[in-house]
């Protein structure tokens, strides 16, 4: 018998995991950011459950710092699919909980979105949240199980992870606890792009090259100028052909210089790239070596 092609194998694994979620939980949800990974998740979910409806709503924790292309893309996609979308805004959480918004030149809401996420989980009593995290992104993520049990505070405890063997997933939790499920744990950035190409998956335009006005940061990264940044005359403003490797907050996600206009060109570019996805684009992981581990322990997905 022939072994499956690697993309077929990764796809089969992801579909299997999604169906386990549908089979094991009462109130699952799919965390949707509008980025390529969560768009792939939606594509996989359709493969797992069509012609039925998705057995979970899409949930977007909106930091308010997203690019408008991504929000438009999200709304069009949901309208086209006829699936349910729940949006909760970090803005509202800040007001309700009297929180202090991010400050400084690049005011990040990265820490704040954990509050909104935990609030929406308890509002709808979600017992499982499917997310698009991949183990190749970051070394703390490389340690996390596919079914990652969180306590009632949403915390990940790396020392208490359940053994996870074969393709047998134990999603049993008590009321108030939830499981974060990562069906594309074993995919790399390049796998995602090869899959997007094969399946002809549509993406927001910011993934492809376009001319944009950016501010050049001290670390040499290109941040698109936008209303959320506080800039002054010392900042160096440049216009470059750029694209985004990840979709995140406009305040902490950098663009990369690129001439890649098609998926094929992006794949060729990535094969030659010497910089990791998060390294190229994220300011939030650079804080310390254990930044991601600490955020996950605090409830981050």
């Amino acid at each position: 018998m022939k072994k499956l092609n690697y993309l077929d194998e990764l796809e089969a694994e992801a579909i299997y995991i999604m169906r386990e979620v549908a089979g094991q939980f009462d109130k699952p949800a799919l965390l949707f950011s509008g980025g390529k990974d969560s768009i792939c998740l939606v594509h996989l979910a359709l493969k797992a459950f069509r012609p039925g409806k998705l057995p979970f709503p899409l949930v977007h924790v909106d930091t308010g710092h997203n690019s408008h292309e991504v929000i438009e893309f999200r709304d069009n996609l949901v309208a086209e699919l006829g699936e349910k979308l729940i949006v909760r805004k970090v803005e509202d959480t800040i007001k309700e909980r009297n929180l202090v918004d991010g400050k400084g030149k690049f005011p990040s809401r990265n820490g704040l979105q954990t509050y909104t996420l935990l609030d929406v989980i308890s509002e709808f009593e979600f017992d499982a949240c499917i997310g698009g995290a991949r183990r190749d992104e970051e070394k703390a993520r490389a340690k996390e199980r596919i079914f990652s049990v969180r306590d009632e505070f949403g915390q990940w405890d790396p020392k208490k992870q359940r053994p996870e063997l074969w393709n047998i997933y134990n999603g049993k939790v008590d009321k108030g606890e939830n499981v974060r499920v990562f069906p594309i744990s074993n995919w790399t950035e390049l796998d995602i792009w090869n899959y997007i190409k094969r399946e002809n998956i549509q993406l927001p335009s910011i993934y492809f090259t376009h001319s944009r006005e950016c501010v050049l940061t001290d670390a040499g990264q290109l941040m698109a100028t936008n209303e959320f940044l506080t800039l002054d005359e010392t900042d160096v403003i440049v216009t470059r052909n750029v694209r985004y490797r990840t979709v995140g907050d406009m305040t902490c996600t950098a663009a990369v210089e690129s001439e890649a206009y098609t998926v094929d060109e992006i794949i060729a570019e990535l094969k030659n790239s010497k910089i990791s996805e998060r390294g190229a684009t994220r300011m939030d992981d650079r804080v310390s070596e254990a930044a991601m581990e600490d955020r996950k322990k605090g409830g981050y997905f």
């Binding site: 070394k139 703390a140 993520r141 490389a142 340690k143 790396p158 070596e289 254990a290 581990e293």
Partner: peptide
């Protein structure tokens, strides 16, 4: 490269 947790390092 592989020891991703603080306790491991």
């Amino acid at each position: 490269l592989t020891d991703g947790l603080r306790a491991e390092r």
